[in-house]
Write a protein that binds this DNA or RNA. Structure first.
Lengths: 204, 204
DNA sequence: ATTAATTGTGAACACTGTTCAATAAGAAAA
DNA sequence: TTTTCTTATTGAACAGTGTTCACAATTAAT
């Protein structure tokens, strides 16, 4: 059997990713397997391995796709805020990130639960995409505190990012298990308000 | 074969947990399997399932043990700080938590990577142990801001906790993959300093 | 010495990701 | 049109996973 040409490699790649993305809107990625995925798209497991090298790389492609979506979402939400304050923009980024995590908990988890065994090599591309999210915040911080030294800027950026990420984690956890009374959005607001306000006043 | 009585059930439970804990000092829990673990302790897989009901519950017991260790570590580090400020105590808790994560990255990960499929029931015990860590912070916050209403107190507590947790995550990630220039401890300090200082000044 | 009770086992089952020789279908050549 | 060449696709085989359960082996009670 060969050259069915139902799909070109590119089409098949997209079909695969789309199918996984659709799946993790409703269920955890751990419920999916290479075999069951192959059945879903009507190809054999071997075909998917030929295409992605391994199931792990397939999942890496999926989380790459998700990171792209997140980046897009943030960019969109940032649009039209050109005359807002830098602090508002940072708040928008954080809320946008949280919103994606809240609306797609299984998908969002997939990105950060994924592990490449010991192959940290290709993970750099992954890391680069995450750094891309970072990169949106740093210039905003610089505008807020032009006199802060570079180290302090990176420190603030990482602290903010890690904290927002942490809030998203417990938000998703709560969403899936024990819903909390206090909205995660208010945690984000509390963080940005207090942390950033104080940081700025110390570095201008 | 039966009644070897090499170990009582309690001893065997402890031996099992100890062996896993020892294992995850050096390697990820994903590198271990029920079968290989059984081989390590010289029993058959079935015996371990008899003892723990399932491999999942075995791993839950391990993360329960770890949470106990963390609790103990924090309690110890808090000892002798009776005349320090509440803010210093909170900082100590956060640093203590980070230190454990840094020194036992695989073990620390195991706690939070562990998933109980759809059995969220027994997870409540797990959640309770995590809440126990929370509980150490809340009275300290209350002392710092006696006039803050209960909701705002919980909000602050959760924001802090989630943020510290987030910093630990990227710290462990960095430790295992791409070491960073900026120490995670300084991120914790930055967070507590700026966030907490500003929060307190708004709620007294 | 027999019997009863209980603890540990390992073969069997249904799954997992991965490999790779065989195959079938389209393209090119005769 | 027929044959040859290429190559995308497959499925059986392999080594691994957690879990079940009938059975075996050892101890305790009779």
């Amino acid at each position: 059997m060969a050259r069915r040409k139902d799909h070109t490699p590119v089409q098949l790649t997209q079909l695969t990713i789309d199918t996984v993305i659709e799946f993790i809107q409703h269920r955890s990625i751990s419920q999916l397997s290479l075999r069951s995925l192959a059945k879903l798209i009507g190809y054999s497991p071997g075909t998917l391995i030929n295409l992605f090298k391994s199931y792990n790389y397939l999942l890496l492609a999926v989380s790459g796709y998700t990171l792209g979506q997140i980046n897009q979402q943030i960019t969109a939400d940032l649009d039209g805020l050109s005359n807002s304050s830098e602090q508002d923009k940072i708040l928008t980024i954080a809320k946008s990130y949280l919103q994606f995590a809240s609306e797609h908990p299984w998908q969002w988890r997939q990105v950060f639960e994924h592990r490449l065994e010991d192959n940290q090599i290709i993970n750099s591309e992954h890391q680069q995409k995450i750094d891309g999210l970072f990169a949106k915040v740093e210039p905003l911080l610089l505008a807020l505190a032009p006199n802060a030294d570079s180290n302090e800027l990176v420190r603030c950026c990482r602290t903010l990012w890690a904290s927002v990420h942490g809030i998203c984690i417990i938000s998703v956890e709560d969403k899936l298990f024990a819903p909390s009374q206090i909205s995660s959005e208010s945690l984000i607001e509390s963080l940005i308000n207090h942390y950033l306000t104080n940081w700025i006043s110390h570095h201008r």
